[in-house]
Computed example of a mutant assay.
Amino acid sequence: MKTSIIVQNLKCGGCANTITSKLSQLENITDIVVDADASTVSFSAIGPDEALTVKERLKTLGYPSIEDENGMLSKAKSFVSCATGKMK
C-alpha cells in the first residue's frame, strides 16, 4: 500500500535524512521518499495500521501531518531533528 503524508516543518535535507533514518527502523515500511520541496513523505506499508504508525512517528519527530496541530513543541522537535540529520 503506497501512502503519502503531507507534513509540517519539513524544510531541508537534514529533515529528510532524519525522517528517512527513523522511518527505516519501522517494520513493514519500505520505499521511503521524502520531498522537502513538496513537504511530503511517501512510503509503502503493509496496511493502514503501519501507515498510522508512520504518521505518529513523524509527529514525535516534530513533523506532524497538515491536519494535526503544529505548536511550539513540534517546531522545536523538528529543529532538533533537522540539526541531527545535518550532522549525519
Rank of each mutant, 00 (worst) to 15 (best):
Q25A: 06
R57W: 13
I46G: 10
Q25T: 11
T60N: 15
D37Q: 05
V33K: 13
G47T: 02
D35W: 09
C15V: 02
K75F: 08
V80S: 08
Q8T: 02
D35N: 09
T40H: 00
S65M: 07
I5T: 15
S39L: 09
A36E: 13
L23C: 07
V7N: 00
V7R: 01
S74P: 12
E67V: 01
F79I: 15
I5Q: 15
N70K: 02
V7I: 03
Q25L: 12
T30S: 12
D49L: 09
N9A: 03
K88W: 05
I19C: 04
C82Y: 11
I66R: 13
Y63M: 04
L52I: 14
I32G: 01
I5G: 09
P48V: 08
L61W: 05
A76D: 11
V54Q: 08
A83V: 12
S39V: 12
G14N: 06
A36M: 12
Q8Y: 03
D49M: 14
T18F: 00
S39M: 12
M72Q: 08
S44Y: 14
Y63R: 08
S74V: 15
K2M: 11
T53A: 10
K88Q: 07
V80Q: 13
M87V: 15
C12E: 02
K88G: 12
S78T: 00
I5M: 06
F43W: 00
G47D: 12
E27Y: 01
S24V: 00
P64K: 04
F79D: 10
Q8V: 05
Y63Q: 03
A76E: 15
F79R: 10
I29M: 05
S65L: 07
D68E: 03
S44M: 13
F79M: 08
K55W: 07
I6P: 10
S65P: 10
A16Y: 10
S42Y: 04
R57K: 15
T53P: 07
K88L: 10
N70L: 01
M72I: 10
A83T: 09
T60I: 13
K86M: 08
I6M: 15
T3Y: 11
S65G: 13
K86Q: 07
P64H: 04
V33P: 11
G62S: 13
Q8N: 05
E69N: 11
T3E: 15
S78H: 09
D68V: 06
K2F: 15
P64Q: 07
Q8S: 01
T20N: 03
Y63V: 06
C12R: 02
